[in-house]
């Protein structure tokens, strides 16, 4: 995963969810909340992304009881998330011209 390539939506929301340590199912519930019910992330998607991000050092295993593993975001993960947030904000800001145009048309 190149550091500066755009994140997928799944990655972005998982990192957001992991600002507080969480286990898999908790993450999915939080993602649904964060997206205000828009996103229902599947376990396959979640598991795949977690595996990748663990390898990249963006998240870390916090604790493990029974089969349930709790993860949290690492500083590197947080940097990446912030960078992505900035990038998205720029995208939205740049898109403002669209609203201006719409207003003119009215």
């Amino acid at each position: 995963m190149a550091e500066n390539s755009p994140m997928t939506e799944a990655m972005y929301y998982i990192l957001l969810a992991l600002l507080k340590p969480a286990h898999g199912y908790g993450m999915m519930q939080r993602i649904t909340e964060l997206s205000r019910g828009r996103l229902h992330m599947g376990p396959g998607t979640l598991y795949g992304v977690l595996t990748r991000m663990k390898k990249d050092g963006w998240i870390v295993l916090n604790s493990e009881e029974d089969r349930r593993k709790t993860y949290s975001i690492t500083p590197a993960g947080k940097d990446a998330l912030l960078a992505e947030y900035e990038r998205l904000k720029h995208l939205v800001d740049d898109g403002k011209v669209l609203e201006e145009e719409e207003n003119e048309n009215e």
Binding site: A10, M28, G42, G44, T45
Partner: peptide, 14 residues
Amino acid sequence: APEIYQDSTQQADT
């Protein structure tokens, strides 16, 4: 139970 994959490109990797 939500669909396991939302993103077919990710499923392709499996």
